[in-house]
């Protein structure tokens, strides 16, 4: 199958590959997908406790080129955003940016799930309620 140039670029030069210390209170980890489905994404964020800005993001993905590209792009996009802003990233933005064909839309869904799971993990660790996250984001 033919991949878009952007998918190939992320596959060959993945951004932000790596691992953050998942025991740190500032780090949220999202692990989504399943090996038997052929896709597992792990996306991690490090959030500044003062500003709630995502200062670093790392990923590792087991999956096809589109899955790798979707998660690589997701790390690029969340970096520098506040937690609330990052939650507004939707899978359709990823589909558009990477020109994913219909059979690969599930990869973008998984990337959105990974962002939400990482943020969810961070919130749980820090006892952040939904409302307060939004409030801080609206500074």
């Amino acid at each position: 199958m033919a991949y878009s140039e952007k998918v190939v670029d992320h596959y060959e030069h993945p951004r932000n590959v790596g691992t953050l210390d998942k025991s740190s209170a500032e780090v949220g980890t999202g692990l989504v997908g399943a090996p038997e489905c052929g896709d597992v994404m792990r996306l991690q964020i490090r959030v500044n406790p003062e500003t709630q800005v995502i200062e670093d993001a790392k990923f590792k993905t087991f999956g096809c080129g589109s899955a790798i590209a979707s998660s690589s792009l997701a790390t690029e996009w969340v970096k520098g955003k506040t937690v609330a802003e990052a939650l507004s990233i939707s899978n359709t933005d990823i589909v558009k940016e990477l020109s994913l064909p219909p059979v690969k839309i599930h990869c973008s869904v998984l990337a959105e799930d990974a962002i939400r799971a990482a943020i969810g993990d961070w919130k749980q660790k820090n006892n952040v309620a939904e409302a307060s996250a939004v409030a801080v984001a609206a500074h």
């Binding site: 691992t19 692990l31 399943a34 597992v40």
Partner: peptide
């Protein structure tokens, strides 16, 4: 494999079959 979370977890000694994967 540098990109694979599964490879990293196995190298750390995590049993992948014990993880509750969210099938999608």
């Amino acid at each position: 494999r540098e990109l694979s979370p599964l490879y990293e977890m196995v190298k750390e000694g995590i049993d992948l079959s014990k993880i509750e994967w969210a099938a999608h």
